[in-house]
Amino acid sequence: MSTKPTIQSIYTDGACTGNPGPGGWGVVVYFDDGSIHEMGDASQRTTNNKMEMQAAIAALQYFHASGQTEPITLHTDSEYLINCVTKWVKNWKRKGWKKADGNPVQNQDLLEILDELNSRKVNWQHVRGHSGNIGNERCDAIARSFASGKIPSLQQFSLTDVHKTLPSPVAKVSKYETNSTIIDTRTQEISTSTPALEITSMEQPTAQAAAAIEEKLPENRVEQLRNLVETLRIADEIAEKGYLITSSELADLMDVHASAVTSRGDQWRWRNWIVSRVRREGNQILWELERGDQLGGEDE
């Protein structure tokens, strides 16, 4: 008699072009018998952080729907997501969803869902992105495909059909856990007309939305350029008026995680600006932007 396979690990990733702009998320679930279940979808206007959260929500909803009691490891390349769920959310809730600077926490709706779905059965594990880890790379490919308006073929495994597994050869989970060279173990594309479960979300992205994105790609590219110009204009104003901004604010401006800002040292270059660490106020590091192409009296 066949037994229900156990979820061993889950990989999640999100992608966004424009930030805000068209986005997508991807999830890959690995079972102990080598079976694989993939999920993903698109959103027409979103942010990278929203897509990272959306992917984790879908993964945890799938885990809960499985009824599994054994713990799992959830892998993500977003340190921001891990910190939100495992560290910061407790204080945010206690302070009425306010950050240390008194400003409201972004994406509270998604964070509340994540907090409700999270449990001690979930071991959050950071994986370095684009390092050859096949689980992370596959999630990234799914997310980017949806973000670009393309609908990828996803491997599907129904939790209700315990007598079927995906056609071999399928690599065992242990091969996916390493950061070794990527190996394409899928010899054919798998599809199914019956998804394992319905994924609900605050974003409510749909595959149809991805098709709509594809039709509007030229418009989206122009919109992304507009967003970029606006971002650069804001950076220029910050530099011109001598405003000091925090690490999180600088990370938002650069569209990176805060850790990517603080790990760069006291002074470095970003696009047209020299970014310098000025001082610390409480638990905040303050940064200054200066136009690097205008130093020494040279005009752009």
Rank of each mutant, 00 (worst) to 15 (best):
I245H: 00
T200I: 11
W270H: 08
L228Q: 05
Q294G: 04
V170G: 02
P104G: 07
D33N: 13
P104E: 15
D77C: 12
K90Y: 02
R277F: 07
R233E: 13
V170A: 12
D109T: 08
R45S: 08
K4W: 09
W268D: 10
I285C: 03
L197V: 14
S78K: 03
P195N: 13
N220F: 06
W268N: 07
T17C: 09
R280Q: 14
F146Y: 14
A56I: 11
S148F: 10
K164G: 04
N49R: 06
E214D: 03
H163L: 10
R233P: 02
N283H: 05
G67Y: 07
A171E: 13
G149P: 03
T46K: 00
N283T: 15
E198C: 01
D33A: 09
T181I: 11
E300Q: 13
R138Y: 01
V28I: 13
A56V: 12
H75K: 07
W273Y: 08
A209W: 01
T160H: 03
N48F: 06
L295Q: 08
G129L: 15
M202K: 05
E177F: 03
G132A: 12
I199S: 00
T6E: 05
G34Y: 12
L232C: 03
N220G: 07
L154H: 11
G297L: 15
K99F: 05
G265R: 15
S153T: 15
T246K: 01
G296H: 07
Y62S: 12
C84P: 00
G24W: 00
E203P: 00
T178Q: 14
E290L: 13
V28K: 01
E203T: 01
Q208I: 06
V122N: 09
W25Y: 09
L244M: 11
E290C: 12
A15F: 02
T160L: 04
K216Q: 03
T160E: 11
G67Q: 13
T73W: 14
S78W: 02
C16H: 01
